[in-house]
């Protein structure tokens, strides 16, 4: 058996549908990871609770996303869609990483900035909102961008819990027609088409923010 162009043409619409789901899952999961990660980074500064949260995050970081997905999927009530569960687990898993990025960004703000805030008697919300976070965010943009690409490449795992993304579509096609070559190759190409340009973009971001 060799490459069948006619077959390729027929399966592209299904794959594009899958790609749309992949992109949705990435965008939603990433948004969740950004917000939750910041919350975790802030909570981690509270003495005892912070340590407990850290331990949980460390556990999440040290165990496979696939197992977390299947585990939560098996426990969750039927009323929740696979897509919702997938996005939630993806978001929480990556929050464990983004939290560390935020933390290192916050810690990289010079101690003098904190002291200046204290010297000016700034209220806490101004200290964080107007001084610390704006400086920290600049530093964390490139690494956060890297995690966006990483998450995009982890979305195929959602197919294990029957979310209809790209990989799921491809394996469905493969199962029905007993042809995997075209579908799987296209999946790989789709991923390359998205990740290579984004990686180049991130590198430019890195250069731009490193220069400051």
């Amino acid at each position: 058996m060799t490459w069948d162009w006619e077959f390729t043409g027929r399966i592209i619409p299904d794959l594009l549908n899958g790609l749309a789901v992949t992109v949705q899952a990435t965008v939603l999961g990433y948004t969740l990871a950004l917000v939750l990660g910041l919350a975790v980074a802030l909570v981690r500064r509270i003495p005892v609770i912070g340590t407990a949260v850290f331990a949980v995050m460390e556990f999440i970081r040290c165990t496979p996303l696939l197992v977390q997905l299947v585990f939560v999927f098996s426990l969750a009530p039927n009323t929740l869609s696979a897509f919702t569960i997938g996005v939630a687990v993806l978001g929480v898993h990556y929050a464990a990483y983004t939290a560390e990025v935020y933390r290192s960004g916050i810690e990289a703000v010079p101690a003098g900035q904190w002291e200046a805030c204290r010297a000016l008697s700034l209220p806490l919300h101004r200290t964080w909102g107007a001084v610390i976070l704006p400086q920290a965010i600049r530093r964390v943009i490139p690494p956060l961008g890297n995690y966006l690409i990483a998450m995009f490449k982890d979305t195929p795992l959602l197919f294990a819990i029957t979310v209809g993304e790209l990989m799921y579509q491809a394996s469905q096609i493969g199962g029905v027609y007993f042809r995997y070559l075209e579908a799987m190759t296209l999946v790989g190409l789709f991923f390359l088409l998205v990740s290579v340009p984004s990686a180049i973009l991130i590198r430019q971001l890195e250069r731009r923010y490193a220069a400051v």
């Binding site: 058996m1 982890d154 195929p156 795992l157 990989m167 995997y180």
Partner: peptide, 20 residues
Amino acid sequence: FRGVAALVLMYWMAFAIPQL
């Protein structure tokens, strides 16, 4: 190889290559 997820690569090798 950074651009393609290991899962996709693994499926490609396990299922697409036997077709070639």
